[in-house]
């Protein structure tokens, strides 16, 4: 080890590191733990111990509807972003042409665009043109912000892919389609899955675009939580948020365990 962790310098580093851990995880723990309190308002540390707020959250029709709305929009956005993102990523890594880097920069640029700027522009655009209806306005907006994530994850994977495998398949008589689906896709699948999962989470968590573009009357989950939090500290809002955190954590853990298992098997 370069730095002895017991030396003064090492201790300073470890202390700062510990502060950072507590700092990053504290508000998340607060949201999971605070609704366990028996008081009618949110308190941390909680007083008493009850599951009634979590129960209330699970039975609240408002939140269930919002979860379904968010799920539908996130699944649609992630799937569309995945398909168009992979097609472009494949073409970006396989063909050399003038302006290729510019095109790649354009495809990635929504990553740095403030979502509020995009939201204002899209709202103006949809009101003027009357294009798309219902949930599709928000899905279109989410596709724009999700596609860069798919590209960012899949581009390096496709660049690393051994081209000779593709050439071998072609030489053995496979059509370009067969080559892509039977040779390229299985190898780069982990990258594609990771990109799509990231796109799904981005859409599911997104607030600003949903505030501007969601269908009136059917807000997404982040919008529902945002509005509820502004009205007051109802413990059941915290319970819904807590359930969201627990579910996210479970999915993340599962994803990494499956990855670790697959690596072990290989």
């Amino acid at each position: 080890m370069t730095i002895a962790w017991r030396s003064p310098l090492g201790l300073v580093l470890l202390v700062l590191c510990t502060i950072a851990f507590v700092y990053v995880l504290l508000p998340i723990l607060v949201i999971v733990i605070a609704p366990l309190g028996a008081t009618g308002y949110l308190a941390f540390p909680p007083q008493g111990l009850t599951l009634k707020w979590y129960q209330a959250a699970l039975n609240d029709q408002r939140y269930l509807t919002a979860v379904m709305v968010s799920l539908r929009i996130a699944v649609a956005s992630a799937l569309i972003a995945c398909v168009i993102g992979i097609a472009s990523a494949y073409a970006l890594t396989r063909y050399e042409f003038p302006g290729r880097r510019l095109l790649e920069a354009l495809f990635l640029s929504p990553l740095i665009l403030p979502s509020l700027v995009l939201a204002v522009g899209l709202t103006l655009f949809f009101t003027r043109t009357g294009l798309l209806t219902g949930p599709w306005r928000l899905i279109a907006a989410h596709v724009v912000v999700c596609t860069p994530y798919v590209l960012r994850v899949s581009l390096p994977v496709l660049r690393r892919f051994d081209r000779s495998l593709e050439e071998a398949a072609r030489n053995l008589g496979a059509t370009p389609f067969q080559t892509f689906f039977l040779v390229v896709l299985p190898v780069v699948r982990p990258g594609i899955v990771a990109g799509t999962v990231l796109a799904f989470i981005t859409s599911f968590d997104e607030l600003v675009l949903a505030l501007f573009l969601a269908e009136p009357g059917t807000p997404t989950l982040p919008v529902t939580i945002y509005s509820a939090v502004q009205l007051g500290f109802d413990p059941s809002v915290a319970a819904v948020s807590g359930l969201l955190i627990i579910a996210t954590f479970a999915v993340m853990l599962l994803y990494h365990l499956l990855n670790a298992l697959r690596q072990q098997r290989n």
Binding site: L26, P27, I28, I31, F204, D205, I225, V229, S241, I245
Partner: peptide
């Protein structure tokens, strides 16, 4: 991976 709305709520 957790929405900024939820994290701000914690604060």
């Amino acid at each position: 991976l957790v929405s900024a709305v939820v994290r701000s709520f914690g604060w």
